[in-house]
Design a protein around this nucleic acid. Structure first.
Lengths: 125, 125
DNA sequence: CCGTCATGTCACCTTTCGGTTACATATGGC
DNA sequence: GCCATATGTAACCGAAAGGTGACATGACGG
C-alpha cells in the first residue's frame, strides 16, 4: 500500500476540498480531462482567470490536479490518488464506528471522563 | 440513506478537517468520549483555552463534535456521521476511478480537449 | 516579423483565520 | 455567603486566503 499521507499533506488535501469553487474545478476536469486553463475559466462567470489559477495552484499543491505543459498551454487532469488514500485510511480508522458498536458506547452519557486535576486557575484563562 | 451534505456543509467538514490541531482534538475525543473543555485543553501545550474553544466551535459547526452541558462543564463527543456521509459519497463518486478503468484513460495524454473558441482576449487577463 | 493568444507574475486590497489577553458569568462545595 | 473552578465572550492583532487589474513572457500562425 502507498505510504500514508503526512499531516501537512492532509492539510493540503482537505483545505483544497473545503471550497466549493475548487470542487467544481475538479468536476470540470473529471468531465474534460486534459482541459487547459482557459477552458476551466470558461466555467466560472463569477471569477477571473487569476483567481482560477490560484485555485488550481491549491489543487496541484494537494496533488489533486496534475498538469503538463504543451506548447503555450497547460493541460490539466484530475488525480484521484489523494482522495483514495484518505478513503483507505478512513476505512480502517472508522470501521468500528460504522459497525455501530463504538457509536452506541459513545453516546452513553454515563462514560464521563475521570475527574482531572489541572493546575490552579484551570487552563490559563 | 441520509440526505447528502450540502455544499456549505461540505465546506465546513473539510475545513474543520484541514487542520492538524483539530484532527488531534478529534483523536482526543475518540479516546476520551465525554471529555470536558479543560480536559481537551490539557493535551495542547502550545495553545490556550480560547484557541481550543474556537477549534471546538469549528468542529461543532461541522457537526464533527457534539456537546452537552452538564452543570458548569460542557462534555464533548466525537460524531463520525459527517465523515461517514462523505465516505459514502466517495464510494459512489470514485468507484470507477479506483477500479482503474477511468484512471488509465485519464493519464493517456492524447485525449486533449477539443479546441475551444473563447471570446477574443481569452479570459479577461 | 508581428500580432494574438495562453499563461505567468506582481502589487494591492479586503476578509477570514488563528491566536492572544482581559473580563464576565455561572456552578459547586465548604 | 464566599471563593475556586469551568466556561463564555469581547477586543485586538498578525498572517493567510481569495479576489482584483496591470503587466511580462513565450508560443503560434499568417
Amino acid at each position: 500500500m502507498a505510504p500514508p499521507l503526512q499531516p501537512d499533506e492532509m492539510d493540503a488535501v482537505f483545505a483544497a476540498l473545503a471550497s466549493e469553487p475548487r470542487r467544481r474545478i475538479l468536476d470540470v476536469l473529471k468531465k474534460e480531462p486534459g482541459a487547459n486553463v482557459n477552458r476551466v475559466c470558461a466555467f466560472f462567470d463569477d471569477m477571473g482567470r487569476v483567481a482560477v489559477m490560484k485555485h488550481l495552484a491549491a489543487l496541484e499543491g494537494a496533488n489533486l490536479v496534475v498538469s503538463e505543459k504543451s506548447g503555450r498551454e497547460r493541460l490539466l487532469w484530475f488525480n484521484p490518488v489523494p482522495i483514495h488514500m484518505i478513503y483507505d485510511r478512513w476505512t480502517t480508522e472508522f470501521s468500528d464506528y460504522w459497525a455501530g458498536r463504538l457509536a452506541r458506547m459513545k453516546y452513553t452519557l454515563e462514560n464521563a471522563p475521570v475527574p482531572i486535576k489541572t493546575r490552579k486557575g484551570g487552563h490559563r484563562g
